[in-house]
Design a protein around this nucleic acid. Structure first.
Lengths: 150, 150
DNA sequence: CTAATATCAGGACAACTGATATAT
DNA sequence: CATATATCAGTTTTCCTGATATTA
């Protein structure tokens, strides 16, 4: 027997890993494709929604939260700043940091988008999944978050 | 009231969508970082595992299965061909197509990797999640697959 | 002096679009 | 001729590494 422990348990884990690898690529592509059209990239959207949820933060703390390098987050933030969606004010206590917050224009944009139910992902979740399936998703997202954050 | 239907139901879906957006980015980054070191990219790994699971296929059918453009799959396949992990034989019935299969070298590589439990994702799934949680993951991956494939 | 923050510069990867040749 | 497959070429996006200035 080539691999002694390749029983059904291990095979099931292999299948899980295989499907998860395929899924992440497809999901990412789908999100990017749907955000297209003068709109924001998935990473930009994720940062804006995090700022909305958790309040003002610095570039570095956002980078840590999203699991990317501070430089990468820096360029992402610069684009959002150019678009007038976030604004930075210097931290009075720590001169190295600038505190980023959503602008009123960005909050307005969220408000309008939600009122019109324009968000593709929200529409899909609402229309394609039953409430019970939505609960399943929420639980699994927490599990996968553990995996992504080591 | 700015948005008449912004009740707790809608707020829960907004939170789900927000967390899912953040998760896909983090997961993708984690997979790429873990595949680093002379190894294969996540997309390459996904294609090889699909060929192993479903048998020989063409560039176009693989592109459809992974939700990407045939050209993108083409360059990905070319790299795997250069690395000696896949080989193509002309389809006897349709001169336009070439049927791609895993090489013996690739199967050997899988065999060795599995025997040594070298796959990061498999190890994480096995050690960080209980069997019940693994079931939850499997169910949720199927749900999210529906979302990714429209 | 060491550690953390931010920014500049350059590069690699993975996907895209458009155009073309070939075979059905 | 219309459709499907594959490939060539160029581009964009997103993230990376390395180096530097500044502040705690």
């Amino acid at each position: 027997m080539p691999y002694p422990t390749d029983d059904s348990h291990t095979a099931r884990i292999d299948a899980l890993a295989r499907d998860l690898r395929s899924l992440t690529g497809r999901l990412k592509r789908r999100l990017r494709e749907q955000s297209g059209g003068g709109d924001l990239t998935p990473s930009q959207t994720a940062v804006l929604l995090r700022l909305e949820k958790e309040g003002p933060a610095t570039t570095s703390s956002l980078a840590r939260a999203e699991g990317m390098r501070p430089q990468s987050m820096g360029t992402l933030i610069a684009a959002l700043d150019d678009a007038g969606l976030v604004a930075g004010t210097p931290d009075p206590d720590d001169g190295r940091q600038t505190i980023l917050s959503l602008t009123d224009a960005c909050r307005k944009r969220f408000e309008v988008g939600r009122a019109a139910r324009q968000d593709w992902l929200c529409r899909m979740i609402e229309t394609r999944f039953s409430p019970a399936e939505q609960d399943q998703l929420a639980a699994a997202i927490a599990l996968l978050g553990r995996l992504a954050d080591d």
